[in-house]
Design a protein around this nucleic acid. Structure first.
Length: 427
RNA sequence: GUGGGUGUAGCUCAGUUGGUUAGAGCGCCGGACUGUGGCUCCGGAGGUCGCGGGUUCAAGUCCCGUUACCCACCCCA
């Protein structure tokens, strides 16, 4: 059989998995301080959850979803992002009934059928938060602050991060603006690419995302939503900016930041870095989606959130020279001198582990020398040597790997002696 | 979906104008006064040279195809 992982997937082996767990721990600790609670929704949903939420015309829905029919004839899709499922769940379970507020965070794999490259996978992991039922600008600023602080907490220097901010408007001003952009594209069709011309009908705002130089140039003269926002959106945006200013978090207004999902309203934001990500640059982003729950048939419920990419964030951390903490695999290595004491060594290791000490021992019947080498490699501070001599005397030889000092300790009180020795060595 | 690059030991790679048993470093295993690590020395294990055709007396080395990975376009986390 073919032992290769499918295209666009990657095994998370110890080095990466350790980083992943570290990132999760930092996230859990930080998010909890802001009052967010964990919530895990299914990895797959009814396809409609995504088509209605993300939007039929988006790249994600139109060409990147893993969609299949299950044995019951339902159309199922592996989640390409996390927000849609969380909002669907909040609606199903009535988490925001009677004006209640829900603050949730999650992490897990997302799936998009794309050509993989640096910082872009078919299965990729995201950590995200969502706050539902909160319409005030302070919610926007809180979510932005969490994302910023999270990257800082991981060791990515603030100076290497760029926070982009924009407002997408709402149902009062966006449709009007959309038509203006569509009209602009049609009137300059000759100078824009084919794709952008098509966008005039499907999703005119995406023309701002086009990378072709002619389009970039032309679109830079297109009307900006900033100038078309209704009073309410304009006031909301101003309030968010003022709050982020007060937090001392630097940002750049990017009127062309439109993001790839249709559900966004008002505030959208993205954090980018330049090093380590190949041709990608966004490590996290999000925005407000005040109409999403209604789109699912629920009551009008404001909400917003962010998602950050694990793989990209790790790349950014590596580019910044961040060392992921990695504990020693063993505090004590139990070495058996020969076969006659292996069972006793095994029992000793278990005893140490039961008392809370990280203990390792050999399972390959290796020589004592090889076991010592192994102990060194694993970073063990002590080796408990158990041989026929020790066993006969009811003792072990405890070797301090740093000082090479050896002391005889009673086997029966080994755990306590080891703990004391470890405490002394560390203190 | 399109384009470019690369596929040789666990890892990083070298393999000359096609020519005898395919190499190095690191890692791994064992040994260097019979029960002891980090340095050094010695020895050892480990490779269908991505896969399939073709050219040739002879191919890791040339040609064709195929596949995988990487990178880029597109888009996004």
């Amino acid at each position: 059989m073919n032992a290769q992982a499918p295209k666009g997937t990657a095994d998370m082996l110890p080095d990466v998995a350790r980083a992943w767990e570290h990132m999760q721990r930092v996230a859990q600790d930080l998010f909890a301080r802001y009052g967010y609670e964990p919530a895990y929704t299914p990895l797959f949903e009814h396809t409609e959850v995504f088509t209605r939420g993300i939007g039929e015309a988006t790249d994600i829905v139109s060409k990147e979803m893993y969609t299949f029919e299950d044995k019951g004839g339902r159309s199922i899709t592996l989640r390409p992002e996390g927000t849609a499922g969380v909002v669907r769940s909040a609606l199903e379970k009535n988490l925001t009934a009677n004006g209640a507020q829900a603050k949730l965070y999650y992490s897990g794999p997302m799936f998009r059928y794309e050509r993989p490259q640096k910082g872009r996978m078919r299965q990729f992991w995201q950590i995200g938060i969502e706050i539902l039922g909160a319409a005030e600008p302070s919610a926007d600023a809180e979510v932005i602050a969490i994302l910023w602080r999270y990257f800082e907490a991981l060791g990515i220097p603030a100076a290497s991060m760029r926070l982009l901010l924009n407002s997408m408007g709402d149902e009062a001003c966006r449709p009007r603006y959309r038509e203006k952009v569509a009209a602009f594209i049609r009137s300059h069709g000759a100078e824009l690419c084919e794709e952008c011309n098509r966008r005039a009908d499907t999703n005119p705002l995406r023309a701002f995302d086009c990378k072709k130089s002619a389009c970039v140039k032309m679109m830079s003269q297109a009307p900006l939503l900033r100038d078309e926002l209704c009073n309410a959106c304009s006031a909301h945006y101003a309030a968010v900016k003022a709050l982020v200013d007060d937090l001392g978090i630097p940002y750049t207004e990017e009127p062309k930041l439109v993001r790839g999902l249709d559900y966004y309203t008002r505030t959208v934001f993205e954090i980018q870095v330049d090093a380590g990500l190949g041709s990608q640059n966004a490590i996290g982003g999000g925005g407000r989606y005040d109409r999403l729950m209604e789109e699912y048939g629920g009551p009008p419920t404001p909400g917003l959130g962010f998602a950050l990419g694990f793989e990209r964030t790790l790349l950014a951390m590596q580019a910044a020279g961040v060392e992921v903490p990695s504990p020693a695999r063993a505090e004590v290595y139990v070495a058996a001198v020969d076969d006659s004491v292996r069972d006793a060594a095994f029992a000793l290791a278990q005893c140490l582990r039961d008392s809370g000490v990280a203990a390792e021992l050999d399972h390959q019947a290796r020589s004592l020398k090889s076991q010592m080498k192994q102990a060194d490699r694993l970073g063990a501070r002590f080796v408990a040597v158990l041989g026929p001599d020790e066993l006969a005397a009811g003792e072990i030889t405890l070797r301090n790997m740093g000082t090479k000092e050896e002391t005889r300790v009673a086997l029966a009180s080994a755990p306590a002696a080891v703990e004391a020795a470890l405490a002394a060595a560390l203190g």
